[in-house]
């Protein structure tokens, strides 16, 4: 294990954590404000990636394709809100889980029918190809730096909106007591729409940004969705700050665990058994982390204020 490798893996972990944060932020907002559990959120991440594939291919420009993909993801998300989600806000969690589960089945298969089952990819934008030299001999792709940077920028924007604007204030009020906000004359339906649209955009953005570095395939949203759940639970449901911190922790623990667990176990067991145990342990690591966090703090690391 060299320092260079460690730095590269830490950056990879950060980048993974930022992606998770973009997905988890929308999920935790929708849950915190609307008390609505949306399993289809991962599908919106997947759609963002597929739309990026199509629009980048059509326009030949990454930035233009990204913008169009985001717009299309937003329109699709709003259509879903109008057709399905809107009728579920008043229902219990079981109905929400089932209906959005049905949506996942439909959309995963629909994507397979439209784009095919084979993994697709998006070419790296020309101005972000190449590498940055971290120290002598250690290179890191520019695009991944751009991803980390844009994720942090979106995080900062989100922080500004939630903490400093009127909409953000209503949002926070809605998260701690939605009926009261409604009683004070705020159009809660409109607020829900805004929150939902925003969450959808974030997930779509994460998917589109991930498209050049991950393979775009049906079901890619499911894994991310479950990891986003872990992030939300660790961070505290409804808390954006919690989601940010937890996403980085999960990203780092998962990436570093997968890279170094094997070497770590080699210190006190034989090579073959270290490889077997390492593979099992590193994919279970974040779930163990979640179990420990829950055992110590059932409400999560940084619970949203006003929720019990």
């Amino acid at each position: 294990m060299t320092t260079g490798l460690l730095i590269v893996q830490i950056l990879n972990g950060l980048q993974f954590g930022i992606l998770l944060f973009l997905v988890a932020a929308g999920l935790t907002l929708v849950f915190g404000v609307m008390d609505f559990i949306n399993l289809a959120h991962g599908v919106q991440y997947m759609l963002g990636a597929y739309l990026a594939v199509t629009f980048v291919g059509l326009t030949g420009s990454f930035v233009l394709g990204l913008v169009l993909a985001l717009a299309a993801a937003l329109v699709f998300g709003l259509a879903l809100e109008f057709l399905v989600f809107r009728h579920l806000y008043e229902r219990d969690h079981l109905d929400q889980v089932l209906a959005t589960f049905g949506l996942i089945l439909l959309l995963n298969q629909g994507v397979k029918m439209i784009w095919g089952a084979a993994p697709l990819s998006v070419p790296l934008p020309a101005f972000l190809t190449g590498n940055v030299a971290l120290m002598d001999g250690i290179l890191y792709p520019t695009y991944r730096f751009a991803l980390i940077g844009s994720g942090l920028a979106v995080g900062a924007l989100l922080w500004f909106i939630v903490e400093k604007t009127r909409t953000g204030m209503l949002l926070r009020a809605g998260a701690s007591n939605a009926p009261m906000v409604s009683a004070l004359g705020v159009d809660i339906r409109k607020l829900f729409m805004i929150v939902f649209a925003f969450g959808t955009m974030l997930a779509g953005f994460a998917g589109a940004m991930a498209a050049p570095i991950l393979s775009v395939e049906p079901g890619m949203g499911d894994t991310v969705l479950i990891l986003a759940f872990v992030v939300i639970v660790i961070g505290g449901i409804g808390s954006i700050r919690g989601a940010f911190v937890a996403a980085l922790i999960v990203g780092l623990v998962d990436t570093l665990g997968r890279s170094f667990m094997n070497d770590l176990l080699r210190l006190f067991m034989s090579a073959p058994s270290a490889r077997a145990t390492g593979a099992a342990l590193s994919s279970m690591l974040i779930y163990l982390l979640m179990a420990v966090v829950l055992f110590v703090r059932p409400e999560g690391l940084l619970p949203a204020r006003g929720r019990t």
Partner: peptide, 8 residues
Amino acid sequence: GPMIILFV
């Protein structure tokens, strides 16, 4: 999928 949604 839609059958599940309609059912719910």
